[in-house]
Protein backbone atom coordinates (compact mmCIF):
# COMPACT_ATOMS: atom_id res chain seq x y z
CA UNK A 1 0.00 0.00 0.00
CA UNK A 2 1.20 3.48 -0.80
CA UNK A 3 -0.16 6.52 0.98
CA UNK A 4 0.50 10.06 -0.16
CA UNK A 5 -0.85 12.89 1.93
CA UNK A 6 -1.00 16.53 1.00
CA UNK A 7 2.18 16.47 -1.06
CA UNK A 8 3.27 19.94 -2.09
CA UNK A 9 6.18 21.12 -4.17
CA UNK A 10 6.98 24.74 -4.75
CA UNK A 11 9.91 25.78 -6.93
CA UNK A 12 11.53 29.17 -6.68
CA UNK A 13 12.25 30.82 -9.97
CA UNK A 14 13.93 34.10 -9.26
CA UNK A 15 11.34 36.01 -7.29
CA UNK A 16 8.46 33.86 -8.49
CA UNK A 17 7.12 30.80 -6.79
CA UNK A 18 5.98 28.05 -9.11
CA UNK A 19 3.57 25.62 -7.51
CA UNK A 20 4.15 22.27 -9.19
CA UNK A 21 2.17 20.19 -6.72
CA UNK A 22 -0.63 21.85 -4.81
CA UNK A 23 -1.45 19.22 -2.21
CA UNK A 24 -1.74 15.74 -3.69
CA UNK A 25 -3.27 13.01 -1.55
CA UNK A 26 -3.94 9.49 -2.63
CA UNK A 27 -3.94 5.95 -1.36
CA UNK A 28 -3.48 2.80 -3.38
CA UNK A 29 -4.39 -0.41 -1.55
CA UNK A 30 -2.16 -3.49 -1.79
CA UNK A 31 -2.63 -5.45 -4.98
CA UNK A 32 -4.32 -2.66 -6.92
CA UNK A 33 -3.20 -0.89 -10.06
CA UNK A 34 -3.79 2.83 -9.92
CA UNK A 35 -3.31 5.19 -12.85
CA UNK A 36 -2.43 8.86 -12.58
CA UNK A 37 -3.22 10.69 -15.79
CA UNK A 38 -2.65 14.25 -16.80
CA UNK A 39 -1.40 16.39 -19.63
CA UNK A 40 2.18 17.52 -19.77
CA UNK A 41 2.65 20.31 -17.28
CA UNK A 42 0.05 18.87 -14.93
CA UNK A 43 2.75 17.93 -12.43
CA UNK A 44 3.23 14.26 -13.26
CA UNK A 45 7.01 14.39 -13.46
CA UNK A 46 7.25 16.40 -10.26
CA UNK A 47 4.95 13.92 -8.55
CA UNK A 48 7.16 11.00 -9.60
CA UNK A 49 10.30 12.77 -8.43
CA UNK A 50 8.68 13.61 -5.09
CA UNK A 51 7.30 10.10 -4.59
CA UNK A 52 10.80 8.66 -4.94
CA UNK A 53 12.33 11.57 -3.05
CA UNK A 54 14.57 12.40 -6.02
CA UNK A 55 13.20 15.85 -5.28
CA UNK A 56 12.44 16.83 -1.73
CA UNK A 57 8.74 17.75 -1.45
CA UNK A 58 8.10 21.16 0.13
CA UNK A 59 5.62 19.54 2.51
CA UNK A 60 3.49 16.44 2.84
CA UNK A 61 4.36 12.79 3.28
CA UNK A 62 4.82 9.61 1.27
CA UNK A 63 4.53 6.27 3.05
CA UNK A 64 4.85 2.68 1.86
CA UNK A 65 2.99 0.19 4.04
CA UNK A 66 2.80 2.82 6.73
CA UNK A 67 6.53 3.47 6.69
CA UNK A 68 7.38 7.04 5.88
CA UNK A 69 9.91 7.97 3.21
CA UNK A 70 9.82 11.66 3.89
CA UNK A 71 11.68 13.11 6.87
CA UNK A 72 14.12 10.24 7.26
CA UNK A 73 17.91 10.11 7.25
CA UNK A 74 19.85 9.47 4.04
CA UNK A 75 20.54 5.83 4.91
CA UNK A 76 16.93 5.18 5.96
CA UNK A 77 15.83 6.73 2.69
CA UNK A 78 18.07 4.34 0.75
CA UNK A 79 16.47 1.41 2.56
CA UNK A 80 13.00 2.82 2.01
CA UNK A 81 13.68 3.24 -1.70
CA UNK A 82 14.21 -0.48 -1.97
CA UNK A 83 10.53 -0.84 -0.99
CA UNK A 84 9.63 0.96 -4.22
CA UNK A 85 10.59 -0.54 -7.57
CA UNK A 86 10.64 2.01 -10.33
CA UNK A 87 10.10 1.54 -14.06
CA UNK A 88 11.10 4.41 -16.34
CA UNK A 89 9.85 5.59 -19.72
CA UNK A 90 13.13 4.80 -21.44
CA UNK A 91 13.96 1.89 -19.11
CA UNK A 92 17.21 3.68 -18.11
CA UNK A 93 19.21 0.48 -18.21
CA UNK A 94 22.97 0.64 -17.77
CA UNK A 95 24.53 0.12 -21.22
CA UNK A 96 27.77 -1.15 -19.77
CA UNK A 97 26.01 -4.07 -18.07
CA UNK A 98 24.40 -7.17 -19.51
CA UNK A 99 20.76 -7.99 -18.83
CA UNK A 100 21.62 -10.10 -15.81
CA UNK A 101 24.05 -7.52 -14.47
CA UNK A 102 21.40 -4.84 -14.81
CA UNK A 103 18.81 -6.91 -12.95
CA UNK A 104 21.37 -7.83 -10.29
CA UNK A 105 22.43 -4.23 -9.69
CA UNK A 106 20.03 -3.44 -6.80
CA UNK A 107 21.16 -6.64 -5.07
CA UNK A 108 24.85 -5.80 -5.49
CA UNK A 109 24.26 -2.58 -3.59
CA UNK A 110 23.36 -4.40 -0.42
CA UNK A 111 26.27 -6.82 -0.72
CA UNK A 112 24.13 -9.85 -1.52
CA UNK A 113 26.35 -12.94 -2.10
CA UNK A 114 27.05 -13.66 -5.79
CA UNK A 115 25.31 -17.04 -5.92
CA UNK A 116 22.17 -15.60 -4.31
CA UNK A 117 22.14 -12.81 -6.90
CA UNK A 118 22.51 -15.39 -9.65
CA UNK A 119 19.53 -17.43 -8.46
CA UNK A 120 17.32 -14.39 -7.92
CA UNK A 121 18.21 -12.86 -11.28
CA UNK A 122 17.44 -16.12 -13.08
CA UNK A 123 14.02 -16.23 -11.40
CA UNK A 124 13.28 -12.61 -12.32
CA UNK A 125 14.32 -13.05 -15.94
CA UNK A 126 12.07 -16.05 -16.22
CA UNK A 127 9.24 -14.05 -14.66
CA UNK A 128 9.48 -11.40 -17.40
CA UNK A 129 10.19 -13.95 -20.13
CA UNK A 130 13.77 -12.98 -20.90
CA UNK A 131 15.71 -15.95 -19.54
CA UNK A 132 17.35 -16.43 -22.94
CA UNK A 133 18.75 -12.91 -22.98
CA UNK A 134 20.74 -12.96 -19.73
CA UNK A 135 24.06 -12.24 -21.46
CA UNK A 136 22.74 -9.65 -23.93
CA UNK A 137 23.57 -5.97 -23.63
CA UNK A 138 20.70 -3.44 -23.67
CA UNK A 139 21.71 -2.23 -27.14
CA UNK A 140 20.99 -5.74 -28.45
CA UNK A 141 17.41 -5.73 -27.12
CA UNK A 142 14.20 -4.27 -28.53
CA UNK A 143 12.33 -1.49 -26.73
CA UNK A 144 9.84 -3.93 -25.26
CA UNK A 145 12.59 -6.28 -24.09
CA UNK A 146 14.46 -3.38 -22.49
CA UNK A 147 11.33 -2.42 -20.60
CA UNK A 148 10.99 -6.03 -19.40
CA UNK A 149 14.56 -5.87 -18.09
CA UNK A 150 13.62 -2.59 -16.40
CA UNK A 151 10.65 -4.28 -14.74
CA UNK A 152 12.76 -7.25 -13.62
CA UNK A 153 15.34 -4.86 -12.17
CA UNK A 154 12.61 -2.92 -10.37
CA UNK A 155 11.38 -6.16 -8.79
CA UNK A 156 14.81 -7.37 -7.67
CA UNK A 157 14.48 -6.09 -4.12
CA UNK A 158 10.96 -7.57 -3.70
CA UNK A 159 9.42 -4.12 -3.38
CA UNK A 160 5.92 -3.48 -2.03
CA UNK A 161 5.17 -0.87 -4.66
CA UNK A 162 5.93 -0.76 -8.37
CA UNK A 163 6.04 2.82 -9.61
CA UNK A 164 5.82 3.10 -13.40
CA UNK A 165 6.60 6.45 -14.98
CA UNK A 166 5.20 6.53 -18.52
CA UNK A 167 6.19 2.87 -18.90
CA UNK A 168 4.78 2.43 -22.40
CA UNK A 169 5.04 5.91 -23.89
CA UNK A 170 8.08 5.00 -25.96
CA UNK A 171 6.61 1.71 -27.19
CA UNK A 172 4.44 0.73 -30.13
CA UNK A 173 0.79 -0.28 -29.48
CA UNK A 174 1.39 -4.04 -29.58
CA UNK A 175 4.38 -3.88 -27.23
CA UNK A 176 2.43 -1.51 -24.99
CA UNK A 177 -0.27 -4.13 -24.53
CA UNK A 178 2.32 -6.84 -23.88
CA UNK A 179 3.97 -4.77 -21.18
CA UNK A 180 0.63 -3.92 -19.58
CA UNK A 181 -0.35 -7.60 -19.62
CA UNK A 182 2.93 -8.37 -17.89
CA UNK A 183 2.30 -5.74 -15.22
CA UNK A 184 -1.18 -7.15 -14.58
CA UNK A 185 0.18 -10.68 -14.42
CA UNK A 186 2.91 -9.63 -11.96
CA UNK A 187 0.39 -7.85 -9.79
CA UNK A 188 -1.55 -11.11 -9.60
CA UNK A 189 1.49 -13.24 -8.83
CA UNK A 190 3.29 -10.95 -6.42
CA UNK A 191 0.32 -9.08 -4.93
CA UNK A 192 2.23 -5.87 -5.49
CA UNK A 193 0.77 -2.36 -5.47
CA UNK A 194 1.20 -0.63 -8.81
CA UNK A 195 1.13 3.06 -9.56
CA UNK A 196 1.24 4.01 -13.25
CA UNK A 197 1.82 7.62 -14.24
CA UNK A 198 0.87 8.18 -17.84
CA UNK A 199 -0.67 10.51 -20.39
CA UNK A 200 -2.18 7.60 -22.33
CA UNK A 201 -5.83 6.85 -21.59
CA UNK A 202 -5.29 3.52 -23.29
CA UNK A 203 -3.00 2.46 -20.45
CA UNK A 204 -5.67 3.29 -17.88
CA UNK A 205 -8.29 1.36 -19.82
CA UNK A 206 -6.03 -1.64 -20.27
CA UNK A 207 -4.50 -2.00 -16.87
CA UNK A 208 -5.87 0.17 -14.09
CA UNK A 209 -8.39 -0.61 -11.36
CA UNK A 210 -8.65 3.01 -10.38
CA UNK A 211 -7.51 6.35 -11.72
CA UNK A 212 -6.73 9.92 -10.68
CA UNK A 213 -6.74 12.92 -12.95
CA UNK A 214 -3.92 15.34 -12.18
CA UNK A 215 -4.34 18.91 -13.28
CA UNK A 216 -2.49 22.02 -12.20
CA UNK A 217 -0.69 20.03 -9.52
CA UNK A 218 -3.92 18.76 -7.99
CA UNK A 219 -5.98 15.63 -8.25
CA UNK A 220 -9.24 16.93 -9.68
CA UNK A 221 -11.01 13.63 -10.12
CA UNK A 222 -10.42 10.13 -8.84
CA UNK A 223 -12.08 6.82 -8.26
CA UNK A 224 -12.28 3.29 -9.60
CA UNK A 225 -12.81 2.91 -13.32
CA UNK A 226 -16.52 2.07 -13.08
CA UNK A 227 -17.34 5.07 -10.92
CA UNK A 228 -15.38 7.65 -12.94
CA UNK A 229 -16.92 6.44 -16.19
CA UNK A 230 -20.44 6.58 -14.86
CA UNK A 231 -19.87 10.14 -13.71
CA UNK A 232 -21.06 11.61 -16.98
CA UNK A 233 -20.12 15.15 -16.00
CA UNK A 234 -16.56 14.21 -15.14
CA UNK A 235 -13.75 14.73 -17.56
CA UNK A 236 -12.35 11.24 -17.10
CA UNK A 237 -15.57 9.68 -18.37
CA UNK A 238 -15.36 11.79 -21.50
CA UNK A 239 -11.74 10.93 -22.14
CA UNK A 240 -11.90 7.28 -21.17
CA UNK A 241 -15.05 6.57 -23.16
CA UNK A 242 -15.04 9.22 -25.86
CA UNK A 243 -17.61 9.31 -28.63
CA UNK A 244 -16.15 9.09 -32.11
CA UNK A 245 -14.51 12.39 -33.00
CA UNK A 246 -17.06 13.30 -35.67
CA UNK A 247 -20.14 12.45 -33.60
CA UNK A 248 -22.97 14.63 -34.92
CA UNK A 249 -24.30 17.19 -32.49
CA UNK A 250 -27.66 17.27 -34.25
CA UNK A 251 -29.69 15.54 -36.91
CA UNK A 252 -33.25 16.40 -37.72
CA UNK A 253 -35.31 17.55 -34.77
CA UNK A 254 -35.68 16.25 -31.25
CA UNK A 255 -33.68 16.24 -28.05
CA UNK A 256 -30.18 14.79 -28.09
CA UNK A 257 -29.04 12.81 -25.06
CA UNK A 258 -25.66 11.37 -24.13
CA UNK A 259 -25.92 8.14 -22.16
CA UNK A 260 -23.12 6.59 -20.16
CA UNK A 261 -23.63 3.26 -18.52
CA UNK A 262 -21.68 0.42 -17.09
CA UNK A 263 -21.69 -3.20 -16.23
CA UNK A 264 -25.05 -4.91 -16.14
CA UNK A 265 -26.96 -2.19 -17.96
CA UNK A 266 -24.52 -2.26 -20.82
CA UNK A 267 -25.50 -5.78 -21.68
CA UNK A 268 -29.23 -4.92 -21.48
CA UNK A 269 -30.96 -3.86 -24.66
CA UNK A 270 -31.42 -0.32 -23.31
CA UNK A 271 -32.44 1.34 -26.54
CA UNK A 272 -34.83 -1.29 -27.81
CA UNK A 273 -36.55 -1.57 -24.45
CA UNK A 274 -36.88 2.21 -24.43
CA UNK A 275 -38.52 2.06 -27.84
CA UNK A 276 -40.94 -0.64 -26.79
CA UNK A 277 -41.86 0.84 -23.45
CA UNK A 278 -42.57 4.37 -24.69
CA UNK A 279 -43.48 3.39 -28.21
CA UNK A 280 -41.01 5.83 -29.78
CA UNK A 281 -38.28 5.64 -32.41
CA UNK A 282 -34.85 6.29 -30.98
CA UNK A 283 -32.10 7.39 -33.30
CA UNK A 284 -28.53 6.39 -32.33
CA UNK A 285 -26.16 9.11 -33.59
CA UNK A 286 -22.88 7.77 -32.28
CA UNK A 287 -21.58 5.42 -29.70
CA UNK A 288 -18.82 3.28 -28.32
CA UNK A 289 -19.08 0.11 -26.30
CA UNK A 290 -15.98 -1.32 -24.68
CA UNK A 291 -14.93 -3.98 -22.28
CA UNK A 292 -12.50 -2.70 -19.67
CA UNK A 293 -11.16 -4.93 -16.89
CA UNK A 294 -14.03 -7.41 -17.26
CA UNK A 295 -16.68 -4.70 -17.24
CA UNK A 296 -18.78 -3.46 -20.12
CA UNK A 297 -19.00 0.28 -20.66
CA UNK A 298 -21.14 2.14 -23.17
CA UNK A 299 -21.30 5.75 -24.25
CA UNK A 300 -24.13 6.52 -26.66
CA UNK A 301 -25.48 9.68 -28.23
CA UNK A 302 -29.16 9.27 -29.09
CA UNK A 303 -31.85 11.49 -30.43
CA UNK A 304 -35.46 11.33 -29.26
CA UNK A 305 -38.33 12.12 -31.59
CA UNK A 306 -39.73 15.65 -31.42
CA UNK A 307 -42.82 16.47 -29.45
CA UNK A 308 -42.70 13.94 -26.66
CA UNK A 309 -42.33 14.18 -22.89
CA UNK A 310 -38.57 13.78 -22.74
CA UNK A 311 -38.32 14.36 -18.99
CA UNK A 312 -40.25 11.16 -18.44
CA UNK A 313 -37.79 9.27 -20.57
CA UNK A 314 -34.79 10.84 -18.85
CA UNK A 315 -36.22 9.91 -15.46
CA UNK A 316 -36.77 6.39 -16.65
CA UNK A 317 -33.18 6.05 -17.88
CA UNK A 318 -31.73 7.55 -14.71
CA UNK A 319 -33.78 5.24 -12.53
CA UNK A 320 -32.07 2.41 -14.39
CA UNK A 321 -28.68 3.70 -13.33
CA UNK A 322 -27.79 5.36 -16.61
CA UNK A 323 -26.03 8.72 -16.56
CA UNK A 324 -27.83 11.11 -18.88
CA UNK A 325 -26.64 14.43 -20.24
CA UNK A 326 -28.96 16.58 -22.31
CA UNK A 327 -26.98 17.85 -25.30
CA UNK A 328 -29.65 20.13 -26.72
CA UNK A 329 -32.58 20.26 -29.10
CA UNK A 330 -32.75 21.07 -32.69
Amino acid sequence: MITVSDLRKVYRQGNNEVVALAGVSLEVPTGKIHGIVGHSGAGKSTLVRCLTLLDQPTSGTVAVNGKELTNVSASELRDARRRIGMVFQHANLFDSRTTEENVGYPLELTGTPKNEIKTKVAQLLELVGLDKFAKAYPSQLSGGQRQRVGIARALATDPDVLLCDEPTSALDPKTTDEILELVKELRGRLNITVLIITHEMHVVKQACDSVSLLEGGKIVEHGDIASVISNAKGRLAQTLMPLPGDAPRSAGSGTILDLLYTGDQATEPVISSLSRQFNIDVNVLAGSVEQLSDQQYAHLRIQLPAGINEQEIINHLQSNGIAVTVKGTK
Partner: peptide, 26 residues
Amino acid sequence: SSGKVDAALVMGSTKMQVIRKVMVPE
Protein backbone atom coordinates in the same frame (compact mmCIF):
# COMPACT_ATOMS: atom_id res chain seq x y z
CA SER B 1 22.10 10.46 -19.03
CA SER B 2 20.59 11.80 -15.83
CA GLY B 3 17.97 9.08 -16.12
CA LYS B 4 20.59 6.43 -15.38
CA VAL B 5 21.77 8.36 -12.35
CA ASP B 6 18.15 8.73 -11.17
CA ALA B 7 17.60 5.00 -11.67
CA ALA B 8 20.68 4.20 -9.62
CA LEU B 9 19.58 6.55 -6.82
CA VAL B 10 16.02 5.21 -6.78
CA MET B 11 17.40 1.69 -6.38
CA GLY B 12 19.06 2.83 -3.17
CA SER B 13 22.63 3.52 -4.31
CA THR B 14 24.86 5.75 -2.23
CA LYS B 15 26.48 8.62 -4.12
CA MET B 16 29.77 6.76 -4.09
CA GLN B 17 28.07 3.68 -5.58
CA VAL B 18 26.48 5.85 -8.28
CA ILE B 19 29.93 7.16 -9.23
CA ARG B 20 31.79 3.85 -9.08
CA LYS B 21 29.18 1.45 -10.37
CA VAL B 22 27.22 3.60 -12.81
CA MET B 23 28.75 6.89 -13.90
CA VAL B 24 32.33 5.77 -14.50
CA PRO B 25 31.47 2.43 -16.20
CA GLU B 26 28.83 4.12 -18.37
